Simulated scan of single mutants.
Amino acid sequence: MTRSSHSRFMRQPMRSWPVKSLVCAALLLSLVPVDAEATGQATPKVGVAAAVNSSAFGTPPGGNRKTLVLGDNVIYRHRIETEATGLVQVLLVDGSTFTVGANSNLVIDEFVYDPNAGNGKLVATLGKGVARFIGGRLSKQDGGVSINTPVGTIGIRGGIANLNVGGNGGTFSLIFGDELTFTGTDGSTNRVYQPGYSLQVGNGDPTGGNVRRTTQSDLGSVQQSLSSRPGQSGGQSSPPGDGTVQQSGFGSSNSGLGTFNTQPPPDPNVVRSTEFGETDSTLLQIQQMNQERNTDVIEANKLTMDAGEAEE
């Protein structure tokens, strides 16, 4: 893809869990401390499991592997693993989310975030499988988000990206945002700067891969892996209903923000040209007199020239 390339923005349905579950996720996240020094804890909690389907496991550093449940804290260097029916959504304190599909392996290697300044750094490793990353505040800064994979390192700035790592290599698609960068194992770099394009890297290829248009197969395979199976509800025994959402106060920070006038400005006043019939009659008379006078001068000059020729 060249810099002059253009493509139509490719949208993808984001339907892993009901939107109402975000209410519970926001409440859970508000209980997660951001800074270990501020809380007196040795290991900082960097996020929370906002949605979990069966066959998903977490292993904290130095701890035992256990089944993840909704509301579990995610800490620094936490390993998240899923099996064939597993699905996990991790909500980090800066607003970033990882949705991890089946048969996947993700580790939060590093997370530093200053909520007051809005800056920091996020480093994760996707060892295998499928994940969708939705950037929070850290992704809005250069170099704020890095994701290591077996074929190279992904950088995501201000956007949404699908990540698919398998035995044949990796496919990384920019769904929305500014850019997706890739650094191969040999140090070669490449970038996708337009949504609707993907970067594909073959297994064992040390270079920066190849950029191409995102296909329906790319989107479909990731979406299938990130969708709940029948009977799954993201770990919620009783999914929130309309009453729960209404009492949560979520509407006051979302739909209760008021409206904005987006009507286009009125057309400017157009000056209408004067019609011939509306022209002042006096001006017409003056123009007619000037025209007759010019005609008389032309005829007089012609008579003079004819007389001169006759005398010769």
Rank of each mutant, 00 (worst) to 15 (best):
L106Q: 01
K128I: 11
F133N: 04
G159V: 01
S139L: 08
T149G: 14
I108F: 06
R157E: 01
I156W: 00
S139V: 02
G120R: 05
D109R: 06
Y113I: 02
T153H: 12
N168S: 15
I156A: 01
Y113W: 12
Q141I: 05
G158E: 11
G166R: 07
A117L: 13
K140G: 14
R132K: 09
R132Y: 05
I160W: 03
V112G: 14
P150V: 03
N168L: 15
L138R: 00
R132E: 11
K128V: 14
I156H: 02
L163W: 03
K140M: 13
E110N: 08
A131N: 05
L122N: 01
G118K: 02
G155Q: 10
G129W: 00
L138G: 04
L174R: 00
I108L: 14
K140I: 10
N116L: 13
I147F: 10
G166W: 08
P150S: 04
V151L: 11
G127N: 09
S146M: 15
S146P: 13
V107D: 04
G152P: 06
L174N: 02
T125C: 10
V145S: 02
I108P: 00
Q141S: 11
I108V: 15
N168C: 11
Y113H: 05
P150N: 07
T153C: 09
G169Q: 12
I156K: 05
I154W: 00
G143V: 00
G155W: 09
N148H: 13
G118H: 01
V151A: 10
V151M: 10
G127H: 05
